[in-house]
Design a protein around this nucleic acid. Structure first.
Length: 732
DNA sequence: GCTTGCGGTATTTTT
DNA sequence: TACCGCAAGC
C-alpha cells in the first residue's frame, strides 16, 4: 500500500489518507479525481479503517460507477464485496425494492420512463379537459420535476400557488400522482423522494442504509440537488463522514436542479470540513489549459482554482469558422483524417451542444468512410419495437403492470381500438378493478371480435410464467416474441423491418447475456429503466460524436468543440440569465478540458435551422479567450462573403485549394484519407465478411456517398442491406 | 378499426 | 427539414 501512495502528489495523498469527518476534494479537470476516489477506497480497506460492506460510493452515471468499481477492484486485486457503488438513482431504487412499504409503495412496482411519464401527463391533461397544445406534457413535467428536485412537494406548491396557471399545474400534478399510484409505478424523481421518505420515516431503514455507508463518498458533487443533499444529510445523521469530490467549474446540471451552493458552501453544510484542492492537471497541454482557464475565469460563482501543468509545449488551440455547417464538418473531417497517423480514431471526439448538430458530421464522415460512433442519441432501448417487447416482458414479471398492458394490448394490431378500451375502462371503474383485471373478466359490451382477441392475448400472457420457468432466459424472450406476434409483425425484406427484427433478436441476446452474468429478468428490467447498458451507436473504434453533457468525465487526444455560435453555445434558452450563461460557459469549459493533445474550436457563419438557412453570430465566449494561445485559421471571410447569394444555399466552394487551411499554413502534407480516395471499393460480385453475418457476396450497390448502401447475400444469414462504414464490412 | 396523407410545429442538455 | 398528431377515407 505504501507503494500505492507513491503514485500520488501531495494533495492527492492528503485526500486519500484523510481519516473520518467531512472532506471536500475540489478537483479541477484532469487532476486525478477518480484516482483519488478509488485510491481512497482502496486505502480505507487496505488499512483496515473500513470494511468493504461499510463503503457507499455514489455517482451520477452508470459509466462512472462501473469505472470506479473496476479500478478499486484492480487496486485491491479482488472483488469488492458488500457496500454500494452506483448511481444516486440506483441507490434509491435499492432502498425502495428492499423496503417498499416504508416508501409508501406496493410490494411490486414498476418504473415509469420518460415516455410513460409523458403518456400519463397527457392523460391527466385530457382528464382535466385541458389542451395539450397549450400546455405540452413535457413542459408540465419539467416544471413539476423542477419543484420536486428543489425539495418542494405538491402540497407546498399548491398552498403557494397564486397565479391561475400555477393552480392548473397543481391540479395536473395531483392527477399525475394519482395515475402513478393507480399504475403502481415510480418515476425518476420519485425514486429519490420516496427513498428519502423511507429513511426519514423508518429509523430501521435509515440505520441499515447508514451502516452500509459508514464511509460515504460522492462523486461529481457539484451536480447534487437539494433532494440528494437531504438524502446524504439524513444518512450521515450528524456524523458528517462524507468525502465529496467535485469541480464547480464542471457543474452542468442546473436545469435538473443541481445546486452549486452545495459545493461552494460545503464548509457551511459540513462544519469543520477539510478542503483539498487538486490543481495540477495531468491531462492537457499548456495551450489547452490556458484557453480553457481563460474562459472559465469569466465566471463568478466559483471557488477559483487555477489549473497548471508541469509539462511544456503543445500545439496552439485552433479556431476555425466556416461558411456553413457543412464547411465546418468538412474542416473537422479533414483534420480527423490528417491526424489518423498520430492518434487512433477512438481517441478523437467532436463535441457539441445539442444532439441535432451531429447530422452534418455524420454525413461528412460517412461520405469519407471514416468510422464514427454517436454516443447517446437514438437509443436502442427507446426504439418502438424494443419498448413493445419490454412491455411484454414486464407483463410476464408483473401481470398488473398497467402502463405496459395499455401499451401492448393492441400490439401487434389485433382489433382492439379506442372503443374497446373505453368499454374496458368503464368496466374497470364499475368493478373497482384495474384495467388488466377488468379486461380479464371479458365484460359485457365487447364486440365478438374484441372478445376473441382479448382471449388470445391473455392466453399468451398466462402461458408466460410457465414458459419462463422451463426455458433459459434468452429462449424465453424468443418464445415471447413469437407467441405475442411481435416478431411476425416485422416480416418481410423491407430494410426497416429487417432492422427491427434484428433489434428484437439483439434484445433476446442481451437477456441471455445478462442471465450469464447472473442478472435476472427483473433486475435487467430495472437496469433498462435506469438507462444502463446504453451502448454507443456505430463503429466501436470510430470517432466519437456526442453532446457536451455526455462528454463529461471522458478524455480524448483530439477534440473538436463545434458550433461556437451565439444561440447554440451559449444556447438561446439559457444565455439571457446570468446563471444560465455561466452554466453555458462551464459547458464550453468541460468540452475544452476533454482534450489531451489537440483542441480545435469550430463554428459556422450560417446554419440551417428551422427549415431555413440563417446567418449566425459568433459565440461571445470566443471574445473571452486569451488570444495568444489561439491560432485563428478561419476560412477567410473574403472567400465567401464577396460572392452573391451568400447563405442562400450551400455552394461548392474552392475547398482544399481555397481557404487558408492549417495544412497549407504550416506547409504540412495534404490530409491523408482513411480509405481509398474515390473509388468506393465495393463492387457487385465482391465477396465480403461481416462480424455477425459471416461471409457473403455483394449483390448490388445503391446510392453514393452518404447514401451508399450494399445489398449483400450472406451464405448463412441471407439477404441484408448494409451501410458499409457502419456495418464494418471486410473484403475477402 | 386501420391506414394514409396532410399540415402544423419544433429543436437543450439526461438519471 | 423531419417528425408527430390528427382527420378523413377505406
Amino acid at each position: 500500500m505504501g507503494s500505492l501512495l507513491d503514485n500520488l502528489n501531495e494533495q492527492q495523498r492528503e485526500a486519500v489518507v484523510h481519516g473520518e469527518g467531512p472532506l471536500l476534494v475540489s478537483a479541477g479537470a484532469g487532476s486525478g479525481k477518480t484516482r483519488v476516489l478509488t485510491y481512497r477506497i482502496a486505502h480505507l480497506l487496505a488499512s483496515g479503517a473500513a470494511d468493504s460492506a461499510e463503503i457507499t460510493a455514489v455517482t451520477f452515471t452508470n459509466k462512472a460507477a462501473r469505472e470506479m468499481r473496476e479500478r478499486v477492484e484492480e487496486l485491491l486485486g479482488r472483488p469488492l464485496y458488500g457496500g454500494f457503488v452506483g448511481t444516486f438513482h440506483r441507490w434509491a431504487l435499492e432502498v425502495l425494492r428492499r423496503w417498499p412499504r416504508a416508501a409508501g409503495l406496493p410490494d411490486r412496482f414498476g418504473i415509469a420512463d420518460t415516455d410513460d411519464q409523458r403518456a400519463m401527463m397527457l392523460r391527466a391533461l385530457k382528464d382535466l379537459e385541458l389542451d395539450p397544445k397549450e400546455l405540452p406534457p413535457r413542459m408540465v413535467l419539467s416544471r413539476i420535476s423542477g419543484m420536486v428536485n428543489r425539495g418542494t412537494d405538491r402540497e407546498a406548491f399548491v398552498d403557494r400557488a397564486t397565479s391561475s396557471s400555477d393552480e392548473t399545474i397543481g391540479r395536473l400534478w395531483e392527477r399525475y400522482e394519482k395515475l402513478k399510484t393507480v399504475s403502481a409505478v415510480v418515476d425518476f424523481d420519485d425514486m429519490l423522494v420516496r427513498a428519502l421518505r423511507a429513511v426519514r420515516k423508518d429509523t430501521k431503514v435509515r440505520d441499515a442504509v447508514a451502516r452500509r455507508a459508514r464511509f460515504l463518498l460522492v462523486d461529481e458533487f457539484q451536480d447534487t440537488n437539494s433532494l440528494q443533499m437531504d438524502l446524504l444529510t439524513i444518512i450521515l445523521d450528524g456524523r458528517g463522514n462524507i468525502t465529496a469530490v467535485g469541480d464547480e467549474d464542471q457543474s452542468i446540471y442546473r436545469w435538473r436542479g443541481a445546486e452549486l451552493a452545495n459545493i461552494l458552501s460545503f464548509e457551511t453544510f459540513f462544519p469543520g470540513a477539510q478542503v483539498v484542492a487538486l490543481e495540477e492537471n495531468y491531462r492537457s497541454t499548456e495551450p489547452i489549459l490556458t484557453v480553457a482557464g481563460g474562459l472559465i475565469a469569466a465566471n463568478r460563482g466559483r471557488r477559483g482554482k487555477k489549473l497548471f501543468t508541469s509539462r511544456e509545449g503543445g500545439e496552439a488551440v485552433r479556431l476555425h469558422i466556416a461558411a456553413d455547417e457543412r464547411g465546418e464538418a468538412r474542416w473537422v473531417a479533414d483534420h480527423i483524417e490528417s491526424k489518423v497517423g498520430n492518434s487512433q480514431l477512438k481517441e478523437m471526439a467532436v463535441l457539441m451542444r445539442t444532439n441535432a448538430q451531429t447530422r452534418p458530421f455524420e454525413e461528412e464522415l460517412t461520405r469519407r468512410r471514416v468510422p464514427y460512433r454517436v454516443v447517446g442519441g437514438l437509443r436502442f432501448w427507446q426504439r418502438a419495437e424494443i419498448k413493445d417487447a419490454l412491455a411484454y416482458l414486464r407483463l410476464a414479471v408483473r401481470p398488473g403492470d398497467l402502463l405496459s398492458f395499455e401499451r401492448v394490448i393492441n400490439v401487434p394490431a389485433r382489433g382492439i381500438g379506442a372503443a374497446t378500451i373505453d368499454v374496458l375502462r368503464r368496466a374497470a371503474r364499475d368493478l373497482g378493478l384495474n384495467l388488466p383485471e377488468a379486461a380479464r373478466q371479458l365484460p359485457e359490451g365487447l364486440s365478438p371480435r374484441a372478445r376473441l382477441s382479448l382471449e388470445k392475448f391473455f392466453l399468451v400472457l398466462d402461458e408466460a410464467p410457465g414458459r419462463r420457468e422451463e426455458l433459459a432466459p434468452g429462449d424465453f424472450v424468443g418464445w415471447l416474441l413469437e407467441a405475442s406476434g411481435l416478431f411476425a409483425m416485422y416480416e418481410g425484406e423491407a430494410e426497416d423491418r429487417v432492422a427491427r427484427r434484428e433489434n428484437l433478436q439483439q434484445l433476446a441476446a442481451a437477456v441471455a447475456e445478462a442471465a450469464a452474468r447472473g442478472q435476472g429478468l427483473e433486475e435487467l428490467l430495472d437496469s433498462v429503466a435506469l438507462l444502463e447498458e446504453n451502448e454507443d451507436q456505430g463503429a466501436p473504434g470510430g470517432v466519437a460524436l456526442m453532446t457536451l453533457h455526455s462528454a463529461k468525465g471522458l478524455e480524448f487526444d483530439v477534440v473538436f468543440l463545434a458550433g461556437l455560435e451565439d444561440g447554440l453555445l451559449p444556447h438561446a434558452n439559457s444565455r439571457d440569465e446570468p446563471e444560465g450563461l455561466e452554466e453555458e460557459r462551464r459547458l464550453a469549459y468541460v468540452g475544452m478540458t476533454r482534450a489531451r493533445k489537440w483542441l480545435a474550436l469550430t463554428g459556422a457563419r450560417s446554419r440551417f435551422l428551422f427549415g431555413q438557412r440563417q446567418p449566425t453570430r459568433l459565440s461571445r465566449f470566443l471574445d473571452e479567450l486569451p488570444t495568444e494561445a489561439v491560432d485563428d485559421v478561419s476560412e477567410p471571410v473574403a472567400s465567401w462573403s464577396a460572392q452573391p447569394g451568400v447563405g442562400s444555399e450551400v455552394r461548392p466552394r474552392p475547398t482544399r485549394s481555397g481557404g487558408a487551411t492549417p495544412a497549407r499554413r504550416r506547409g504540412g502534407p495534404a490530409p491523408a484519407t482513411v480509405t481509398d480516395a474515390d473509388g468506393t471499393g465495393w463492387r457487385p460480385g465482391d465477396r465480403v465478411r461481416h462480424q455477425r453475418f459471416g461471409s457473403g457476396v455483394i449483390l448490388a450497390c445503391q446510392g453514393t456517398g452518404a447514401q451508399l448502401k450494399l445489398v449483400v447475400f450472406f451464405d448463412r444469414a441471407g439477404r441484408k442491406t448494409l451501410v458499409p462504414t457502419i456495418a464494418r464490412l471486410e473484403k475477402v
